[in-house]
């Protein structure tokens, strides 16, 4: 089955960010396809490479990057939500005259149309939020 996962909450703040990851991993392990993971609302904070949790804790951001690399996942961060919350890639930095970027490996910034398209293309959309 083809899944899309939507992540609506931020890392460490809310279980939804962890559950979304665990679910995505389980879906892949069962041999299903993940069409896209879409990060929205505070979920975009799962995509900043400035995250530095204590060493004895899970690394929510790196975990996604590693899963993406392993399974060629499409991790999409909503541009409008990202702009509000300071998640920036090279293109956004240039466009908005910012002197830094912080998008983590394996994530890309794109529009809300990617979420709707994912809804059309996937058999299931599973939303993780509050």
């Amino acid at each position: 089955m083809k899944f899309t996962v939507q992540v609506n909450e931020g890392p460490y703040q809310h279980q939804a960010a962890d559950s979304a990851y665990q679910f995505t991993k389980a879906v892949l392990e069962k041999g299903h396809e993940v069409f896209r993971v879409f990060f929205y609302h505070d979920g975009v904070n799962n995509a900043t490479n400035l995250t530095t949790p204590p060493q004895d804790d899970r690394h929510v951001v790196n975990r996604w990057s590693e899963l993406a690399k392993e399974h060629d996942l499409d991790l999409v961060v909503c541009v409008a939500a990202a702009q509000r919350r300071g998640i920036v890639d090279e293109g956004e930095a240039k466009r908005n005259s910012k002197d830094a970027e912080n998008i983590a490996d394996g994530f890309r910034i794109s529009g809300l149309g990617q979420l709707i398209e994912a809804g059309i293309q996937s058999d299931r959309v599973v939303v993780f939020g509050d």
């Binding site: 929205y40 609302h41 409008a80 809300l112 149309g113 709707i116 398209e117 059309i120």
Partner: peptide
Amino acid sequence: LESLEVVLIGAAFDQ
């Protein structure tokens, strides 16, 4: 507000 933004963008997809 962010839900409404999805609805407005999504409207272009004629669903």
